[in-house]
Design a protein around this nucleic acid. Structure first.
Lengths: 131, 131
DNA sequence: CGGGATCCGATTAGATACTG
DNA sequence: CAGTATCTAATCGGATCCCG
């Protein structure tokens, strides 16, 4: 996490382990909020999938961001990566139990957004009229 | 939302209104995942608060990001902004019903993260050992 | 096929200075 | 007090090329 934030919180007298938690929460929230993670998790929710298939299914993602995002998800134990020793190579990605659990939690939030999307759009329109 | 993504989805045959929803979902998720929004919403959850008070309570935020984030939240109807005609000026921000509702939804996700933080940290450590 | 390495433009956000 | 304006450093992400 951010060293600056850590210093700020510590200066405010926040307990060290609590500081770590705040950092991790922010970290995971940022992951959820990033451009590709949710789309990839959503695709993987329907079952294991290969690199190229994901690349086709997730609209507009570059190879760089696909590998990068997959690596990060793998690092956090949210997906597994299985390389089959074949030619041509085949690699499959699959959600772990932890990953499926997160997918569900995120889905609640997505449902909230879908439910309230018209309210948000209306508010924006109203706000934008008055500038 | 992103015009590129819109084109991609449309090319894939996704219905227009569904494309809008995907864009808005991503938009709100990005908001939730950004560095300051959740911290500000969390502070406001305890009651209405002034600009300067928020600036003190949210560790490390700059004036620029505080006003910017507050403006965005206001635009989406998640908070209200009340300016009192006094000298010196006083402005209070407060969660709307919609904002409190979102705060609750986000809180579920935060609880999930706190619950599974040790698992994630362990996974990272294991992953990092093998590089 | 499944990526890693590099370059570079675009976006983001902090610091600083200033204002009604 | 509650911001805005401007400049700049850092980060992000796409394009491209290359490799096992």
């Amino acid at each position: 996490m951010d060293a600056v934030l850590r210093a700020e919180l510590t200066a405010q007298g926040v307990a060290p382990d609590c500081v770590e938690t705040i950092g991790l929460v922010r970290d995971v929230l940022a992951r959820v909020g990033d451009k590709w993670t949710v789309l990839i998790i959503t695709e993987l929710a329907s079952g294991p999938m290969r690199y190229t298939t994901l690349h086709e299914k997730v609209p507009g993602i570059s190879q760089r961001m696909l590998s990068h995002t997959l690596r990060t998800l793998h690092r956090d134990g949210l997906i597994t990566r299985t390389a089959f020793p074949e030619v041509p190579p085949r690699v499959e990605y699959e959600l772990t139990a932890l990953g499926r659990s997160l997918a569900q939690a995120v889905d609640h939030l997505v449902v909230w957004i879908r439910t309230h999307q018209s309210a948000i759009v209306d508010n924006r329109d109203t706000f934008d009229i008055g500038n």
